[in-house]
Design a protein around this nucleic acid. Sequence first.
DNA 1: CGCCAGGACACCG
DNA 2: CGGTGTCATGGC
Length: 273
Amino acid sequence: MKDFDVEKIANSGEVFRLNKVSDDKYKSVYELISTDKYLNIVYDKKKNTYKYSCDKDEFKKIYKDYFDLDTDYSKYLKICKKDDKFLKDAIKYGEGLKILRQDKYEMLISFIISQRKSIKAIKTSIERICREAGKKIKNEFGIFYAFPTPKEILKNKIKLKSCGLGYRYPYIIEACERIASGEIKLDEYDKLSTEDLLKKLMTIKGVGEKVASCVALFAYHRLETCPMDVWMNRVLINAYHGKFPEEYIPYLGVLQQYMFYFAKEEHNVKKEY
DNA sequence: CGCCAGGACACCG
DNA sequence: CGGTGTCATGGC
């Protein structure tokens, strides 16, 4: 399936608990843990198909939406300007990427952790807090750990100090306190405009514009939000002379995902664009 | 060993 | 408002 590529999504920096666990000539196996749910995904290389460990009802109810499978991304990507070689190459390179609909709370904590860390380091840090504070999941594939709820994080404060969180530790504790107390209701932010959503998220200590944008894009599916990290800043300066074209703005978050993935994987931002 | 990582914040002018 | 130093720690 060229319009849905789990391998690329797993490496795209928008989801941190989707990982390849085995790979041979015939198939690749991936594991996804989202909140407290486990999904095993087998990609058949010959048939070019995916097989999932859940039943069809659950897939339809949860994962179709989670992976945004009903959306034809060509409607976003066709706004690429004809003379925009960088985006054209990025779209081709990133074919199969999706903007997922992930859990709001999990994204918030994950991206607070993400600041000044590599994607690899983010993943290990998240796995550690899940192991220290998350519920144990046992199934036919093994033993896994759910993403801890705010209460579970607060209950295991001391253990979390050994998870490589560094200076982000107090940020996470405070965010969890405000969510657990009911002061912050992430679900209610659904009805806010994107501008107000970002403002609300940024009232949380440790959440600046970049982290708020990631949460808005990857959890609230605000496709116009464009997280600007070190890679996207290089893209903006080197390929767009400091300004993205106006017509990109409604879907800049989607386009950004292809640009980010292309730039990060190929390290080619400085070359010829 | 040094450098960078999907940055935020306090402080400054 | 925009610019600067500082903040822990893992990966490479």
